[in-house]
């Protein structure tokens, strides 16, 4: 079997709602799909001792992150009978209220799509070498911590 090429998952800045709409539209021809599951991560304007978060600036160890994402993708495909899987993660500055993560799974039936989407999101958040710097003002920031 030919090894699958490593896909880029990074998008500069926030993920636009148009990209998501286009991605949904592109699946219309695939009439074997009976259910999609979508997770959208949005930047919160958290109140911190240093101020209100106005944006998150994402950096990544991109080469390793893409290899990790590829590995996770293969493992999720092996575990669940999915028709499609798409992953987009922001890099750079994403203002509060905008989207930084888009995970999209499709399957013949809903349960597989929902379970795969959930596991994929958890694994991406836990295993991708990506870091968010929460910006509060011109010289104010803290390093984000995942829960």
């Amino acid at each position: 079997m030919k090894a699958k090429a490593i896909k880029n998952i990074f998008v500069q800045g926030s993920i636009s709602p148009e990209l998501i709409a286009d991605s949904i539209r592109k699946h219309a021809h695939n009439t074997g799909i009976g259910g999609h599951s979508i997770f959208l991560g949005q930047v919160r304007a958290d109140e911190k001792p240093e101020g209100t978060v106005s944006a998150i600036d994402y950096t990544a160890y991109e080469d390793m992150a893409l290899e990790q994402a590829h590995q996770i993708r293969e493992e999720i495909f092996a575990k669940y009978p999915l028709t499609c899987m798409h992953i987009y993660h922001s890099i750079g500055l994403v203002p509060a209220g905008e989207l930084s993560l888009f995970v999209f799974t499709s399957s013949v039936h809903r349960k597989v799509a929902i379970d795969a989407c959930e596991e994929l999101v958890e694994r991406l958040k836990g295993e991708l070498p990506v870091w968010g710097r929460e910006i509060m003002g011109p010289n104010q920031y803290t390093w984000k911590e995942n829960r």
Binding site: G41, Y58, A60, Y61, D63, M64, A65, E67, H89, S100, L101, V121, L124, K125, G126, E127, L128, P129, V130, W131, G132, W143, K144, E145, N146
Partner: peptide, 26 residues
């Protein structure tokens, strides 16, 4: 070389060692 290591690991002639704080993507 882009793989997480646990414990002491040998280093080759050409290698890339990354120091990674806790991940906080998403």
């Amino acid at each position: 070389d882009r793989k997480l290591v646990a414990g002491n690991t040998g280093l080759g002639m050409m290698c890339e060692v990354a120091l990674l704080p806790p991940f906080s993507g998403g």
